[in-house]
Design a protein around this nucleic acid. Structure first.
Lengths: 152, 152
DNA sequence: TCGCTATTGCGCACCGCTCGCATCTGTGAC
DNA sequence: GTCACAGATGCGAGCGGTGCGCAATAGCGA
């Protein structure tokens, strides 16, 4: 996919299958390559956030020659299209998932436990940020650090 | 400072001057070295979050031989003592500051603008996390990503 | 002043990720 | 079908941020 292609308006991207995404890729000048398809197959199947390395392993189980740098490049392209989102759940590598599945996290700094956080809990924070700073928050990107019941 | 030393209870650390911290370090078996003192001098003076590299430059302006790895090690020790905290304000290097000065941030993913976020705005999120998950959040560690008024 | 040990300077190495480049492969045009 | 072009890939080098091992140094209590 060529760099100059503009990203779509956030929230306007709609897809339900790998083929939908491939059509989207094609519509924006990209090509329906096999490595791209396999990566999407994995992302649609696991329905979880995986690191680039984990994704590469899963992809290579089906297409051994796909290089990790190709995975990174495809992930970047798919993020530009609004199909994929990445998040940072701690000090390690970023994790990637289908954008519609993104959600917020709490991470315990003691034991590393990860818990999903309902978006509703961010409502008042989001309203304050919007009303007083004009800022639209995305609570999914960075996890919220803290202490779980056992560690605090 | 030796590794096995336990961290103090969070919130119980009290200090107002560099000498207070040096006394704390000594009380826990650490030594009052000049590099440690210069680093603390810088941290007390700037009252801002700086990266390890920026801190090293500031330290080296006064003590040219201090190596960046020494700065990293001292920052780690001071974090264990509860004197320093680091936070991640984006994809770049971590930033360090005196723990009592820590605060939450919003970061615009479009232009990189950073805004401080009042702790009060996290009240309902904190209450939900505590009541429903037993989780005590620290909203300072990772910034909240989003879009500023101009970029959204 | 002495001896113990925390600490330091230095450099190497790691991890997560990006980039340059030569090669390959989808794709539309014919 | 086949051609040619541009997008995409494999590979490896490289980079920024950080941690580590080691020998030398320097606080500190006695």
């Amino acid at each position: 996919m060529s760099k100059p292609l503009a990203a779509p308006d956030p929230g306007t991207v709609e897809f339900e299958t790998v083929d939908d995404v491939m059509a989207l890729v094609r519509a924006r000048g990209g090509r329906a390559t096999s490595s791209r398809r396999v990566l999407l197959d994995v992302l649609f199947e696991v329905e979880d956030h995986l690191t680039a390395e984990e994704l590469t392993e899963a992809v290579q189980a089906r297409a051994p020659d796909v290089h990790i740098s190709t995975v990174y490049r495809n992930l970047e392209d798919l993020q530009r299209l609004g199909v994929v989102a990445h998040s940072h759940l701690g000090h390690g590598p970023a994790t990637y998932q289908l954008a519609p599945l993104a959600h917020a996290h709490f991470i315990c700094s003691g034991c590393g436990t990860r818990v999903e956080a309902p978006d509703e809990w961010f409502g008042s924070l989001a309203r304050n940020a919007k009303a007083k700073l004009g800022f639209t928050i995305d609570p999914h990107h960075f996890a919220i650090v803290g202490r779980c019941a056992a560690c605090s």
